[in-house]
Design a protein around this nucleic acid. Structure first.
Lengths: 236, 236
DNA sequence: GTCTTAAAAATGTGATCATATTCTATCGAC
DNA sequence: GTCGATAGAATATGATCACATTTTTAAGAC
């Protein structure tokens, strides 16, 4: 039996800007593709295979893969095969709980530093989310959704939790994307509007509630997917 | 003015076992030295310098440093200089809060899986901590203390938070170690005994309280260090 | 036809080298 | 003497190569 070819990948490309080092470009490209579920769980990744696809030497790919492994986005097996980890029900539940724990904390820490300008930026991002929802553009929904949360949390200049949170996103990303893509239409109560209101009012508890509700909505919509359990534990 | 020589380092060596890849050995060695405060904040690290000290090629050092950077243990400046980040009061406070948040959660998740055998192992580790406290052996106090917490949390087979927690330890490590080394005598209420008792009783709330108290004790003892504020923000 | 075994291809790791960028220090202007 | 510029050293990055291990493929035995 032949396992799937590591080179058989339809990657979402991004242009390499000149101020970006090659390994950073590879990292961001792979990261985006993982978050979009473009690389499905169980898929074996090889350094040389990716290097050939991306037309770069194996070195920057090696670094990018190691970093992704460090963040839990990919898993290095003892047979030194690199794969996208498969999801289990327990893992999904734990990752979700950790998201709520860390993100409500991060939001709370950011609130005192939120300026009018931040609120305006967040409104713009939310508008992009709405537009993406309108077109059922799942890629951009999750991309802009992350941008919204990231900008909020990073308002706190003493932010420590964001890298941890991003690691959780990376671990949830591939699975969430696959699950959501099974939905005919993504429907979401716009918790971001609620969150923005609590920001204006400096309402700490309300903000925490809005963030938690936003995350729980996402989890709930994933759980509405028909036969969602078939997608756990690598049963594709 | 000449900045400190990257090669001027007194590293705590560990022997390289054969089943360990070179880059893993370098990683563990640097990690240990960072946790022990052997490499002080602000110290510039260079790939070639470390490679020469450790008598390996620059390649495994490169990988180890990148991984440590990914975990927040070292910081890669835009001038591509790698340094140990200095601590600020706000950063220390935030890292401590995150420890409490994540570790009480991890302890809670582990409780249902704790077996008699785990309790016995934890008792053994705690005995080692007591012995280290007796001899004021700060290295082993923190080492075994981490082992205690790690074993507790890892009882949960669906554990996700431990890597995040270890990242926090790595960021706190160098500073804590330097601060504590200023103490004449480390004095600690043995919260681990309390925690073990709550494990036997399956007392969830008590366990959370014990873990939080344990972490807060550590923070408090650091804050008792004379002139602790001089050690913030890289003022050495 | 199925299982075992051996050859061949592929892969990760680590070493070495070329290059562009950054840092250091010596030299010169004021 | 102090400040700034230029030459040299040092560095990270990325490419290429050699090697040990693993995986895949192919051939042979029953």
């Amino acid at each position: 039996m032949k396992s799937s070819d590591p080179k058989d990948l339809k990657l979402l490309m991004i242009e390499k800007s000149d101020d970006l080092k090659t390994h950073q470009w590879v990292y961001q490209l792979l990261r985006n593709n993982l978050l979009c579920g473009r690389i499905e769980p169980g898929k074996p990744l090889t350094i040389r295979g990716l290097a050939e696809i991306l037309q770069v030497s194996p070195m920057p790919v090696r670094e990018a893969l190691h970093r992704l492994a460090c963040e839990g986005a990919v898993e290095v097996k003892n047979n030194r095969r690199v794969i996208v980890p498969s999801m289990t029900a327990e893992k999904f539940s734990e990752l979700s709980e950790l998201r709520i724990l860390l993100e409500t904390h991060a939001a709370e820490g950011a609130l005192p530093y939120i300026k009018q300008q931040d609120i305006e930026i967040l409104e713009q991002i939310d508008a992009k989310i709405d537009a993406a929802v309108e077109h059922n553009d799942v890629d951009n929904i999750s991309l802009h959704n992350q941008a919204f949360h990231r900008h909020l949390y990073c308002a706190n200049p003493f932010q420590i939790a964001v890298p941890l949170i991003e690691s959780l996103w990376l671990q949830l990303g591939p699975f969430s994307r696959i699950a959501i893509s099974k939905l005919e239409k993504v429907y979401l109560v716009d918790r971001h509007v609620e969150a923005l209101e609590t920001l204006r009012q400096r309402n700490l508890l309300g903000l925490r509630r809005a963030i938690e509700a936003d995350i729980r909505d996402g989890i709930a919509s994933i759980k509405t997917v028909d036969g969602i359990h078939d997608y756990f534990q690598g049963v594709a």
